[in-house]
Design a protein around this nucleic acid. Structure first.
Length: 355
DNA sequence: TCTGGGGTCCTAGGACCC
DNA sequence: TCTGGGGTCCTAGGACCC
C-alpha cells in the first residue's frame, strides 16, 4: 500500500487572521510583530507587505522603513491558537493521523483515506475548501509519499497552493531544487555544501558514499537519503516535551542590578507557572544571557529532586547569574529554561508552539 | 540593518564508575 | 613508568525550525 502524506501550511497565518477579524485591514500590507522600540522582529508579513521586501524574522525597524504604510499589529497568540484548533479539527475529521508542527502547519497521513494520486488530490482539495468555508483562510497543501516531499511541495505553490507529487517521482521532483529547500539545511550547511560544489538537491543525491558524512557529520547520510526521496519518518500524533522556557529582550541593555533581577524573577515565574499548569517538574534550571554585543551564554544547574517551585528555581537562577555577571556587563536578554522534566510529558500539542 | 521567542537535536569535553 | 575501555551523566554551545 502506498503511503500518502499531506503537509498543510496556512498562508501568512497570523496576518491572515488579523485581516479576517478586521475587514479594514484587508487588501493592506499588514505586519505582525512587536514594536520597533522593543527591538522586535517581524513574525508574519501579509502578502501585500511582501513585495516591499518585508520578510519574517526581519527587524521591525527595517520592515517599517521598507514599507512605511504598513499596519503593524502586536501578535495575539491566544487568538491564533484558537483559530489553529479549528483548523486542526478540520484535519482530524479527515484522518486521526495529524501531526501539528506549529499553529499553522501540520502533517497528515491519509493513506487510509486515499489510495491513488487522484484520490489524494481530491482529498486535499476538499480540505482546502473546508478550511476556506469554515475559517475564511487559505491553506497551501503539498502531498507525496513522504514528509520531505510533502513539505517541500506545500512550499512551492504558495499561497492557496495544491501540489501532489506522484509516487515514484520523488527524486525527480527534488533534484532541481536548491539544497536549502531541504529540512535541516540552514545557512551554515548551505554554505558548507556550496563550498564543496553541491548546489542542488540532485547533487546531494548523486554524491559519492561517505562524502556527505565527511561534510555534515551524522546528518549527512540522512540528508542524502532525503535528497534521494527516501524518508520513512512516520506522522507522529503525540510527542514528549523536553523543555519549557521563557526569555525576554529588553528595550534597552541592562547592567546587573535590581531591574535585571526583576526580569529574571518574571521569567522564572512564567516557567514555574507553566510547569505547574502541565503538572511537570524539572531537575535542571538553565539561565540564558545575551550580552549587548549579542554573544549568548547559558549556565545550568541540576539537582536530584525535580521541582516546580518558583522560589527554589529563582534561588538557583540568581546563583547562576551571580556566578557570571561582572561589573560593566550589559545584557540585552535574559531567559530561563527548565529541562530534565518529569511528569506526564507526552502531549498532543504542537512541537513548536508559537511562531 | 541590527538582529524575537518558542522549541528540538547534536557534539564535545570532563567527571565518575566499573 | 605510563597509564584501557566502555558507559552514563552533566555542562556549554551551536545549528536549525516555525
Amino acid at each position: 500500500m502506498t503511503r500518502w502524506i499531506l503537509h498543510a501550511d496556512l498562508d501568512a497565518f497570523y496576518a491572515a487572521v488579523e485581516q479576517r477579524d478586521n475587514p479594514e485591514l484587508r487588501g493592506k500590507p499588514v505586519i505582525v510583530g512587536g514594536p520597533p522600540e522593543a527591538r522586535a522582529v517581524v513574525t508574519t508579513a501579509s502578502y501585500e507587505a511582501r513585495p516591499f521586501g518585508v520578510r519574517s524574522a526581519m527587524p521591525m525597524s527595517r520592515a517599517l522603513r521598507l514599507c512605511p504604510e504598513a499596519v503593524r499589529i502586536t501578535p495575539r497568540f491566544d487568538r491564533y491558537a484558537e483559530v489553529s484548533r479549528e483548523v486542526m479539527a478540520i484535519f482530524r475529521a479527515a484522518t486521526p493521523l495529524v501531526e501539528p508542527l506549529s499553529l499553522d502547519e501540520a502533517f497528515l497521513d491519509v493513506s487510509e483515506q486515499a489510495r491513488t494520486f487522484e484520490e489524494v488530490e481530491a482529498l486535499a482539495r476538499r480540505l482546502k475548501d473546508a478550511v476556506r468555508e469554515r475559517t475564511q483562510l487559505t491553506v497551501s497543501i503539498g502531498g507525496g509519499t513522504n514528509k520531505t516531499v510533502a513539505k517541500i511541495a506545500s512550499d512551492m505553490d504558495k499561497p492557496d497552493g495544491l501540489l501532489i507529487v506522484p509516487a515514484g517521482q520523488e527524486a525527480a521532483f527534488l533534484a532541481p531544487l536548491p539544497v536549502r529547500a531541504l529540512w535541516g539545511v540552514g545557512p551554515k550547511a548551505e554554505a558548507a555544501l556550496k563550498a564543496a560544489g553541491f548546489r542542488l538537491i540532485g547533487d546531494l543525491a548523486a554524491a559519492p558514499p561517505g562524502r556527505m558524512e565527511a561534510l555534515l557529520g551524522s546528518r549527512g547520510a540522512v540528508l542524502q537519503q532525503m535528497a534521494r526521496g527516501i524518508d520513512d519518518r512516520p506522522v507522529e500524533t503525540t510527542h514528549e516535551r523536553k523543555s519549557i522556557g521563557a526569555e525576554n529582550t529588553f528595550p534597552r541593555d541592562l547592567p546587573d542590578g535590581p531591574e535585571l533581577r526583576v526580569e529574571l524573577r518574571r521569567a522564572v515565574q512564567t516557567v514555574a507557572g507553566r510547569l505547574q499548569e502541565k503538572n511537570l517538574r524539572a531537575r535542571t534550571v538553565v539561565l540564558k544571557l545575551r550580552y549587548a554585543d549579542f554573544t549568548t551564554i547559558t549556565r545550568q544547574s541540576s539537582r536530584r529532586d525535580p521541582t516546580d517551585d518558583p522560589a527554589t528555581m529563582l534561588a538557583e537562577a540568581n546563583a547562576l547569574l551571580d556566578s557570571v555577571a561582572r561589573e560593566g556587563d550589559r545584557f540585552r536578554l535574559i531567559g530561563v529554561h527548565a529541562t530534565n522534566l518529569s511528569g506526564e510529558t507526552t502531549e498532543q500539542a504542537p512541537l513548536f508552539q508559537l511562531r
